[in-house]
Amino acid sequence: MTRGDRQKLFMGLLFISPWIIGFILFLAYPIAASLYYSLCHYSVLAEPVYVGMENYTSLLHDSVFKVALVNTLIYAAMALPINMLMALGLAVLMHRPIPGRGIFRTMFFLPSLVPLVAMAILWSWLLNTEYGLVNYLLSLVNVPPVDWLGSTQWSKVSMVFPTTWGVGGMIVIYLASLQEVPLHLYEAARLDGARFWRQFWHVTLPLISPVVYFNLIITIIQLLQVFIIPYIMTKGGPARSTLFFVQYVYDTAFRFLRMGYASAMAWILFLVILGLTLIATWATAKRIYYSAE
């Protein structure tokens, strides 16, 4: 490396140093510290005491941890297909040359700009048993009122509704990718007699498959980290039916002040997300087509 190269390297590092410093201070160090604390008893005020794998083995016998994990997986299993299909379906519809397309695009994107706290409060009222709009609409078709937030049967389902409001971001990504699909492929398909569904299945979907995969992974991660909506709407109740993983981590860390135990939980969540991401990658590997390949 010449003196000039070294100088360029130094200048480059200098320019990205704010990011490097931020990354080390606010990401790398906390990640490393949480890994160490997950092997300790640590209550913030006293020095951490190393206990090896005790926190991890205790989690195996923690029934509330299991409840939180199962709740989160059930919620994600409900919300994932709904969000994915809804976002893709709406994007395909709004990609077609329909009148007022721009207005529709704006309308579907706007809810994703609503702060989560406001969204949670709004949905609390929409799902109100007595005066909520959802139950009112159901009453028009003679469906008896549903206790969305107060019953253990419906509370998790209630948490899915607000997430469907947040698919605007995903729709925008789909729209961008749909616009990249070459028109001549559709023309060729039409000449071969393919109608809408066959065009979608054999042309559109394969060509936007990398974007579907991206949205799938991002949605899995977001759903498994759900926190604000249930924390505000139900605080984990009734009877822990909406106690999700991240809320249990939060309670354990900042209310029970068991930082070591909470750190172990956070690492378990990381492994769960990593595992599901790998499964999703493996399951979709043969169905994703990159144009460069």
Partner: peptide, 13 residues
Amino acid sequence: VERVQAFRGGFGD
């Protein structure tokens, strides 16, 4: 249970 929950839920928290 259902009636009492509806009664409580009607007024929000």
